[in-house]
Each structure stands twice: as C-alpha cells, then as structure tokens.
Nucleic acid binder design. Structure first.
Lengths: 176, 176
DNA sequence: GCGAGCATGTAAAAGGTTACATGATTAG
DNA sequence: CTAATCATGTAACCTTTTACATGCTCGC
C-alpha cells in the first residue's frame, strides 16, 4: 500500500462527505472499502487525535451532552490538504501512478470530477503500458523453464489483469 | 501482504533452489519477483541472521577464504518448515485462500508439483467465487449513487480481474 | 585512479496487527 | 435482564521503510 500516511487521507476523504465518529469510520472501511483497504480501531482513534491536534479535523459540538461519543468534521485546512493530495499524481514531476495510489484516489472521485478523473486515468494508462511491456519480457524468460511454471502463471495472470484494466480505462476515458 | 513472516518463507523458498548470498536474494526479489513482492537489504540481512540462529539455514563453508561474502544454504529443518508452509492452505481448517497467500505459494511450484498445485488452485477458485458474489452485491448498491462513481469503477475493475483469474484457474486446472 | 556494482550491515521511524480494557445503549 | 452492538481507547509487538555507514573488487 501507499507509504505516505494513507490512513490520514482515507479519514479526511470520508469526512469530506459527512460528519462521522471513529466508529462510523471503521464501519465504512469495513463495508464500503473492504475490497481494497481497511484499518483497526487501534489505528483509527490515535490518528483522529493526531488530525485534531494538527487542526485538520474538528470536533462537532455535542448539543445533547451525549458525552463519550465524538463526532468529527473536516476543517478547511484539512479539506485543502486532502484536495492537494488528490491531485499530487498530476503534478509535472510525477510520471507514473501505481495501482494503489490510483485506486485510493479514484475512490473519492464522483462523476462530476472529470477534471481530475480524466488526467488521472490517462496517467494510470501510461503506467500500465510500461508495466505490460516489462511483464512480456519476463514471460519470455520464465516460459523457458518448467520449474518456473508457477511464476509463469503469476505473470500470465498479471498480464491479463493489466490488459483488462487498460480496456476499462479506455472505455471510461472515451465516455468522458 | 500476508502477516506471518512472509520474508522468512520467501528466503527459504529461494534457498530450496540454490545457495545464495543476501545480495543474490535481493537481486532475485527485484528482478524475478518484482511484479508482486520485494524487500530491502535492511530487512534481508537481519532475517538471514535470525534464520541462521534458528538453524533453518546454514553458512556454506568458504574454501577460498573469500571472507566477507556469506553464502547460505537451506537446512533440512528449514526445508521441512518451508514445505509445511507451502501446504498450510490445504489443511482442513483453512477454507479460503486470499490472492497474496495464493500467489506467494504459486511462485515456488513447478509443473511437477501437481499434487500441491491442483488443490491450491481449487481452493483459490472457491474463494474467488465468494468474493465475486460479494462484489456483485456491492455494485448494485454503489451504482445508484453518481457521487460513488469512482468506487463503482473500482468494483467493476475488481470484478473483471477476478473473473479473469477464475478463467485462468479453470483452464489451468483442466490442463492437469 | 575512479566509478559501477558487489557486499554487509545498523538505527530510527513509520505503519500495521493483536491483545487487552472498559463502559453505554438498545433490541428482544 | 441479557446479549449484541455501539463506542473509545492503550500497550506490546511485529513488519516495513528510509537513512546512514562501510569497504571490496573489477573493468576502463
């Protein structure tokens, strides 16, 4: 998974949509994101404390004095940080985009975010093409040795998956 | 990635094939396994020390007094441990096999390991079917909301990839 | 002689998992 | 009243990454 404080951005991303408690966030990770990402309470609660200290999120004042329950909302600084992160792969220095970084961002983009969505998909498409070329070369090497049969199957699987992703990206880019 | 000391089994797996130095192991990870796994020197060298202490590997005596270079080979206990690990998903208690655990093992299986290969692929096939069913349900939910467009694309991508994997597994299982 | 690649490590920090601990609310 | 679920956290441990540190060997 991506190295640079993924959890932070996952939480901020969820909070751009609505106010939530730590418990809600965990539920959402487990249900909505389970196919590619999750985090336990022991990671979520300390991260919420850190985000609060950094003033990237704030506590929603509790009118009902419902005490122990802590509802958070994103702050304007948090919102800015998150939006900058969303666009990081589109800065000129970044010339490739791996699957994790792509999927993590894609999750927070709606049909109306075409201005980010389109260049993001184009960048991912380019990266996949490079990866495909490397895998083709590897396949030639590996296919020679019957002892590397399992390895060969892995490469064939990866090739099929990436070709598939490419097809999906193409059809989505056209549909813009 | 898999939680239970993956690096240990990756190293043991490589050493079942030939004697190697820590440097060789890193090279192999980067070249041969780059498509799904790697590890830095700072992880490899300490792990080799631990494996040596546990007597799962041994130093190959250096005839040439070539000093600083340390070549390792797998011990009989190490070989046993590795082979048990290879077959763990095939014990009766284990009823599902995620992609990482599958690929990690597949890498070390040759065309002549059909006795492990076939049940491993059958188990993975069953797991994929469950995962596909869950994704289909999620897709129905998510497709309703245009704000979840990115999330929908992720699910479609996952569905396509898993269907693809299933096809490949089927054709490989038949080819036994 | 010099730079690329061979070769081995340590230290610190960050990220992630598992176990432990506690208590309130709500539906049956 | 009691079990499930809501709700928040700490501690210990393990894994992984990044940075630092050192020295040899071989081809040009």
């Amino acid at each position: 998974m991506a190295r640079t404080n993924t959890l932070q951005f996952m939480i901020l991303g969820l909070l751009t949509r609505q106010e939530m408690t730590g418990y809600d966030i965990k539920q959402t990770f487990d249900k909505e994101k389970a196919e590619f990402w999750s985090a336990p309470f022991s990671q979520i609660y300390p991260e919420l404390s850190r985000l609060l200290k950094k003033e990237l999120i704030e506590l929603v004042p509790d009118e009902t004095k419902n005490s122990r329950k802590k509802t958070y909302r994103i702050s304007s600084q948090g919102f800015k940080l998150f939006n900058d992160w969303l666009k990081i792969p589109l800065t000129p220095e970044v010339t490739q985009l791996n699957n994790d970084d792509f999927v993590l961002r894609l999750h927070f983009l709606g049909k109306d975010d075409q201005d980010i969505l389109q260049p993001l998909m184009t960048l991912r498409k380019q990266t996949i093409k490079v990866e495909l070329a490397q895998l083709e070369l590897e396949l030639v090497e590996v296919a020679k040795h019957p002892k590397q049969y399992g390895h060969e199957l892995i490469i064939r699987k990866e090739l099929a998956n990436k070709n598939n992703d490419l097809k999906l990206l193409n059809s989505t880019i056209k549909k813009s």
